[in-house]
Amino acid sequence: MMNIHVPVGVSARHVHLNKKDLEALFGIGYELNPYRPLSQPGQFASEETLKIIGPKGQFNKVRVLGPLRKETQVEISMTDSVALGIEAPLRESGDLRETPGIVLSGPKGSVSLSSGVIIAARHIHFHSSEAARYGILDKQDLSVQIEGNRGSVLHHVIARVSDHYQLELHLDTDEANATGAENGDTATII
């Protein structure tokens, strides 16, 4: 495989809501207000934030991302998991089987999730045409090199392929801090 250069996106803790939970937290008929677009087409950070509360700790002002999803999902880092006092598993986004829950608190109410908290597995979004050009398959296991003062090679980076994606490596804040990577840096698939 040829070396493929990929922009880096660092993903801080955040929440994806379904309609039912959005209305429980913000009020009936409420709609998310886009704050800024994200790199993936149609995705946005909203103006709305929540408090997430675990058995041992909590985080305030956790950003809600849009658009709404079928299931509410909370994405945190391993460090966050320890601070909250929960054992969140490493998973691909959307894989919520056998995951711990958490309490979400908003301006109009709270929701006690029985499941839905994950540490998102590092992954690269590929548009289908790019994946075809590079010979990348959906769910393929890749390795990525990150340059810089804390340069590292990360293995087990999952390829995610869709007509709705734009090329970008997604790391959580723990991974970004460990490798010295920042938004907009470039990584290389090796």
Rank of each mutant, 00 (worst) to 15 (best):
S114F: 06
S112T: 13
A131T: 05
V111A: 11
A121M: 11
D80L: 03
R69T: 05
L65G: 04
V111F: 12
K108M: 09
T72D: 14
Q73M: 00
T79V: 04
S93C: 08
G94A: 07
H125E: 01
P100F: 04
S105R: 10
R97K: 13
E75I: 01
E87H: 07
S110W: 14
L104T: 11
A83W: 09
K70R: 13
T99V: 01
D80P: 11
S77C: 07
R122G: 07
L104Q: 08
L104K: 00
G94V: 05
R122K: 12
L96T: 15
H125I: 01
G85S: 07
F59W: 09
E75K: 01
G109M: 06
R91I: 04
V117I: 03
L65P: 04
A88V: 00
L84M: 11
I118A: 02
G94D: 06
A88S: 05
K61T: 12
H127P: 08
K70A: 10
E75L: 02
M78I: 11
R63Q: 14
D95E: 13
V103D: 12
R91V: 02
S128V: 08
G116R: 04
L68S: 04
A121I: 10
K61Q: 15
P107W: 07
G106S: 09
V82M: 12
R122N: 10
V117Y: 02
L90Y: 15
I76N: 07
P107Y: 08
R91N: 08
L65V: 11
E71R: 14
E71D: 15
L96W: 10
D80F: 02
D80E: 02
H127V: 00
R69S: 11
E130G: 02
V117N: 00
G66M: 08
L84H: 01
R63K: 13
A121E: 14
S115N: 10
I124N: 13
E92L: 12
S114D: 15
L90C: 03
S128H: 08
G109Q: 10
K70G: 07
D80W: 00
P89F: 05
P107M: 05
H125S: 03
S93I: 05
I102L: 12
E92Y: 08
E87C: 05
L113H: 03
S105H: 14
P67L: 06
H127I: 01
P107H: 10
L68A: 01
G94E: 10
G109P: 07
D80I: 04
R97S: 09
K61R: 15
V64Q: 02
E71Y: 11
G106I: 14
I102K: 01
R97T: 09
P100G: 00
H125R: 03
I124M: 08
Q73K: 07
G94H: 05
